[in-house]
């Protein structure tokens, strides 16, 4: 079962490598000490948050401001973790507290779209361990490569995180017409929140509000097609 989880997570782990390497490169070019960059990947293990934090550190933001912004960037994990709990009903509290550390946008997508009702412990453990190892070792590799990388390649690598999100989203909407409607709605809301002169929200807030509002609206008004959820 552990190996089944490892196998399922392998493409994610391999996909993490260029992103983690990018993170190492970007963070060291921002002047953060090598040990601290690797420590951040070890302790935080969250791609989007770490990129945002490096941006903020580079722009000279205060400690409290950085931590509060990261909190808002992470609020979406409350929703993801809540979704994950549906698939992990029969696990002990201590175990859940441990594996929750490994819930990322990617492992969450795999768990949430698994057709099984209840997921085995060893499977989930395998699923989160491999990407974690890839994330930390990729970061270290990026730090080592550091600034010897040509600037043009360095800036091209920043698309990696988004390419991964797109790669997770497309299979979702291919399977379900109702999810495509939610995507349309979410893009509309986040554009409105980002560009309308009436709001002045940080990126973290925009992500959280968009996710909440579009999922509540969809749960109320959009029928689930071709799936047994919520019928």
């Amino acid at each position: 079962m552990f190996y089944q989880g490892v196998k399922k997570a392998l493409p994610v782990a391999i996909g993490y490598l260029p992103i983690a390497i990018t993170f190492g490169v970007v963070a060291s070019s921002a002047g953060i000490p090598a040990r601290m960059i690797v420590l951040m990947s070890l302790m935080v293990f969250a791609g989007a948050s770490q990129f945002v934090a490096v941006n903020l550190i580079a722009s000279g933001a205060g400690i409290l401001g950085i931590i509060i912004t990261i909190f808002f960037v992470n609020l979406r994990h409350i929703l993801m973790s809540a979704t994950t709990s549906e698939k992990l009903k029969k696990q002990s509290k201590g175990w859940l507290a441990l594996i929750s550390f490994g819930i990322t946008d990617e492992s969450f997508s795999i768990i949430a779209t698994d057709p099984r009702e209840d997921l085995p412990r060893a499977y989930v453990f395998g699923l989160i361990t491999v990407p974690y190892i890839a994330w930390v070792s990729g970061t270290a590799a990026g730090v080592l490569i550091g600034e010897s990388l040509p600037a043009l390649l360095e800036s091209s690598m920043e698309i990696a995180l988004y390419a991964m999100f797109v790669g997770l989203l497309i299979p979702e909407i291919k399977r379900s017409n109702s999810k495509l409607k939610v995507v349309t709605l979410a893009v509309f809301i986040s554009s409105a929140l980002s560009w309308s002169p009436f709001f002045n929200l940080s990126e973290g807030w925009i992500i959280t509000i968009t996710t909440l509002v579009s999922a509540i609206f969809a749960a109320r008004f959009i029928k689930v097609e071709g799936d047994r959820v919520g019928k």
Binding site: A112, A186, S190, I207
Partner: peptide, 13 residues
Amino acid sequence: RFLYYIPPAALSA
């Protein structure tokens, strides 16, 4: 249903 719609909504945002 709400939780079912969270992944596409969060990824889009």
